[in-house]
């Protein structure tokens, strides 16, 4: 009997509490008349950033593509004459993208980043397909100063072997000195 009363009391309290919300202000932001505040890490339109040297950060490693739960990223690796990897094409089908940000998390070079821009409506779905030239921005985005190739051991133009972070100068294989 006590349990039943308690249950009834609980229901009544619920009703009362909800009723009290008559006097609380609404949380709705009337977009588009009012623009909401979006944090810098808000997950909106995806961009490809550049490293401090102005080169593409993306090395076409395909990790974003494999992390993507809706498989909306397709790219192809190619290489410049100095051995630097970059994307031959890089395509995001935003009509499939769910803005989950897993690509950004998977990216080992901070190349792919989500931005607070979410206003991406189109009348033609085909316009939601972004190619590399649409994705690439000229800035560094959220991680200024990071350059993958100056951490990685691969030699590229203007960065020889042994010049990366924490690397000793290349070994002279022909030397017998200790």
């Amino acid at each position: 009997m006590g349990m039943i009363l308690k249950a009834i009391w609980s229901q009544l309290v619920t009703l009362y509490r909800v009723l009290l919300h008559t006097f609380t202000p609404t949380d709705t932001v009337s977009y588009p008349e009012e623009m909401p505040y979006l944090a810098p890490r808000y997950r909106g339109r995806i961009v490809l950033t550049r490293d401090p040297g102005g080169e593409e950060r993306c090395v076409a490693c395909n990790l974003c593509a494999v992390a993507c739960p809706v498989d909306c990223i397709a790219l192809q690796k190619t290489e410049d004459e100095h051995g630097r990897w970059y994307a031959d094409f890089f395509r995001i089908n935003f009509s499939r993208c769910v803005m989950c940000g897993l690509c950004e998390e998977a990216c080992p070079t901070y190349a792919i980043q989500l931005t607070p821009d979410f206003e991406m409506c189109e009348y033609d779905r085909q316009n939601m397909v972004y190619e590399k030239e649409h994705l690439l921005i000229s800035g560094q985005g959220k991680y200024p100063g990071y350059s993958f190739y100056h951490v990685a051991g691969k030699a590229i133009k203007d960065k020889d072997k042994g010049e990366s972070l924490n690397e000793a100068t290349p070994i002279d294989v022909r030397s017998l000195l200790p």
Partner: peptide
């Protein structure tokens, strides 16, 4: 419902 859920509802 909007009022009680701190929303606007149809407007």
């Amino acid at each position: 419902l909007g009022l009680w859920q701190d929303r606007l509802g149809p407007n």
